[in-house]
Amino acid sequence: MRTLGAFFRALLNINTIWGLLILSAFAVCMLQHYLPTTTTFQPGVLHEGDNQLIIGIKGPNGEVQTWTYGLTIQSGAPVIAEDDRATDQDRPWLIDARRSGNGYLLTWDADTYGKYTVTANGAVVRKGSLVTLQSLTDAAFDWAKVGFDLALGLVASMVLFLGLLKVGEKAGIVQLVARLVDPLIRFLFPEIPKDHPAAGAIVMNVTSTVLGLGNAATPFGLKAMQHLQSLNPNREVATNAQVMLLAINTAGFALIPTTLLAVRKSEGCSNPFEVIGTCMVAGATATIVAIVLAKLLGRLPIFSAQAALHEDDNMAVADGPVQEEAR
């Protein structure tokens, strides 16, 4: 029982998930880098004689490039032209074509990566993605840049709303809001002392989320997190209140999914707004589940703060929690 608990805790650990994401990305990438791409042609797509084959690839720079090949079928057996097999030309090359059932199976490969489309005699046969090791390298650098931009983009709204919140705290309005919603806070966050500014920040965070004001919701949420951290005895271990705040935010209930509606409108839905009701029902379900789980799972021994605190005990970590307890 204890080993099972330890296993689950290790599996749901952010370190494990993070590591597995990278390891599986590498493994899947290696496979696709060294294995050729296979395209299946259903019966009737290719006919006896000359067939025109087009491979189009939308490369990393967003441009679509297309190449044309000829595929001759002589009494049921496909033949690839010697030119099309050449790997030293700057284009995808065909490796093998053979009969499979009543259809045909083509293997080919390319040096570049991106979304590809295979077209035979004017009809799209298959859409898919080509992956090489280069795509992994590019993704790592690209997304590090995206992360930097996202964090930088937060700074302006952080300054704006943290400033506003400070004015509100000095005037006592945040504490006033906290007192108004006290019963609800008592239920969801029993650890927060009466009239603590954390409650005010939480209310503003949740209100902005519900109204779809993401720019305001994040600063308020991070401020609330900071207030909760000041009530936290172990600075590296999340408290029940912090997990609850996080659960409410990951569920992210909004009355109007603004970005989604914009996409639906631009993609040509005849009634973009018809999903507002279904979004609300599904969103409310997710939020209720998040709140209930945040409440209940925190009581399980494998998720207790004590267990998390001693997680590092069997790992070689120099600055473990031991010194902290001695203090």
Partner: peptide, 15 residues
Amino acid sequence: GSVGIRKTRHAVIAG
């Protein structure tokens, strides 16, 4: 991340 918490406890599974 904003408060330096590394032990997320049941946050991942609840989310």
